[in-house]
């Protein structure tokens, strides 16, 4: 969405960063608790999905 100043990219960037931090924090907690490296693939997948969805949102696709 475009904000009041028309800063579309800034808002998109903020959303992406917040999502990224959230997934990294949750991922780290899971990694520490489960003590398994297999979860890493799912974290990477989630991060990539976040990137793609935000990019699509940014490009209005």
């Amino acid at each position: 969405m475009v904000d009041i100043n028309g800063n579309y990219a800034t808002r998109g960037g903020e959303k992406l960063l917040i999502k990224l931090i959230a997934i990294i924090l949750i991922g780290k907690c899971l990694l520490l608790l489960a003590d398994e490296k297999d979860i890493l693939v799912y974290i990477k997948l989630a991060t990539l999905l976040i990137f793609i969805t935000t990019m699509l949102d940014f490009l209005k696709l």
Binding site: I24, L25, G27, K28, L31, K37, K44
Partner: peptide
């Protein structure tokens, strides 16, 4: 800075 934090937090990503 945020990317640096993420890198150091989970080094595999």
């Amino acid at each position: 800075l945020i990317l640096d934090f993420c890198t150091r937090f989970i080094q595999d990503i």
